[in-house]
Design a protein around this nucleic acid. Structure first.
Length: 401
RNA sequence: GGGCGGGUACCCAAGUGGACAAAGGGGGCUGACUGUAAAUCAGCUGCGUAACGCUUCGGAGGUUCGAAUCCUUCCCCGCCCA
């Protein structure tokens, strides 16, 4: 095992608390536990509210991986029960509740995806329905008695809703209790979470104390912004990059990040060392490194994490030909044209636009090309014939055969 | 339980009998430009024929030549009171 100083340097990298005092407390507590020379029990929970894991989830997973690599015991907790309620932490509005069936279906793919980051051999997978579903109402009441309503109302997201007059549902309060109870059941030393999770992580400390356990160390990491560069990455905001998405798509999405968001991505989702990242940032500022080239490095690294170096190289080639040189991609899907068909119908049935109306609009805006020639009239009829390339917008292609 | 306010398109939000497929913003899309699917600028953004029509403003009924707008009823949310 590495020295405690070395471990601390790695483990505290990227950790962020709003309050410097809290940072010092947690740092000291972590050091203390590490000095006990035993593998620490570390966990992070993930609610399977969507079937796919995206880059935002990987921020904490990477931290878990670092613990693993240092010989600690990592539990990947899947929130099959907490997901039923929906975590209000990241929301200023109510989350939709999922059914057990949805959650189980999502959960089955979660762990598999997580192993693109985590070490499969060293990861313990647990589901919190295992213990949360067994609690009685009396148990729930007992858990609730450790918290005051004011403590909950002081949370920023609840406070905002109060001010706006938006509803805050009673069941949303239970989320923190449940997550806190997870920590009790897992008897954790350390819990990882996003910064917005702090309240929930602290609830774990509180409940652990109430159950006679030593309160866990909490480590929070910044929230990754989505591809719009403004709000947090999430499925519902459709600004996410899924870790199972095809290489070309991942690469393209990274390239569409606003320049300002680049450095955050370097810091939170890549395998670059802090030194390397500092150098990139300095080069960018000095003008020695072109922002586009930096972003291409980022895109390549991210694709490489999930699909390997070879796929990353291919994705980069694809991007260069299609977007930088405006040439056709090497591969595209084919559409068999049997009989003459109006161009708008062709666009729709080939899946290049959701409706004929939309197809018509695209043509009017000069966004449709057949064999490189912009289509002028929406009334055009396409005849069967030799293979031709139909292009809609910048990035949708079909070979008509 | 009572009083008041509210439910509008993917989201936020204007609209209080015809000029409403419904302002504005966000998001999305297209084009120009570029350093790129960044930034910036412009346009488009319910559906189908292209004359017009159809579906849409919490649900269901109704009044009217005509309803997002008026009436009845039901469902849901907020605030205040209990």
């Amino acid at each position: 095992m590495r020295s405690i100083d070395e471990q601390m340097a790695i483990l505290m990298q990227g950790v962020e608390f709003g309050d410097p005092q809290l940072y010092q407390v947690m740092e000291a507590e972590l050091r203390e536990r590490l000095s006990e020379g035993r593998p620490l029990r570390v966990y992070c929970g993930y609610d399977p509210t969507a079937p796919d894991i995206h880059l935002g989830h990987t921020v904490t997973m990477r931290k878990l991986r670092q613990f693993q690599d240092l010989g600690h015991e990592v539990t990947f907790l899947i929130g099959t029960f907490t997901g039923l309620i929906g975590d209000p932490s990241d929301k200023e509005a109510l989350r939709p509740q999922r059914t057990s069936e949805e959650l189980m279906a999502n959960a089955s793919t979660y762990a598999e995806q997580a192993f693109k980051i985590l070490d499969r051999e060293k990861t313990i997978i647990r589901y919190n329905a295992e213990w949360l579903s067994k609690l009685t109402f009396a148990d729930a009441v007992r858990l609730a008695s450790h918290f005051t309503v004011q403590q909950f109302l002081a949370r920023d997201n609840f406070a905002k809703r109060m001010v706006k007059g938006d509803p805050i549902w009673l069941h949303e309060f239970f989320y923190a209790l449940m997550q806190g109870y997870d920590a009790v059941m897992l008897q954790t030393d350390v819990q990882i979470g996003a910064t917005e999770q702090l309240f929930n992580l602290m609830a774990g400390r509180k409940l652990q104390e109430a159950f006679g356990q030593r309160p866990q160390v909490c480590l929070t990491l910044p929230i990754l912004v989505g591809t719009d560069g403004r709000i947090r990455m999430s499925k519902s905001a459709s600004n996410y990059i899924g870790i199972s998405e095809p290489p070309e798509q991942q690469y393209g999405k990274v390239m569409s990040l606003p320049d300002e968001a680049m450095m955050q991505y370097f810091r939170l989702v890549t395998r670059f060392t802090p030194d390397e990242i500092a150098r990139i940032e300095a080069d960018l500022q000095a003008g020695r490194l072109h922002p586009r080239d930096a972003k291409m490095m980022l895109a390549r690294e991210i694709v490489s994490i999930f699909h390997g170096d070879e796929a990353a190289a291919r994705a980069e080639e694809h991007f260069k030909t299609v977007f930088q040189q405006r040439e056709l991609p090497p591969e595209m899907t084919e559409y068999a044209l049997q009989a003459p068909l109006p161009i708008v119908d062709l666009i729709c049935t080939a899946g290049l636009a959701p409706s004929k109306r939309e197809a018509r609009r695209l043509i009017e805006q000069g966004g449709v090309k057949l064999e490189g020639h912009t289509i002028q009239s929406a009334d055009m009829i396409v005849q069967p014939g030799p293979p031709r390339v139909l292009q809609v917008g910048r990035r949708r292609f079909v070979r008509v055969v």
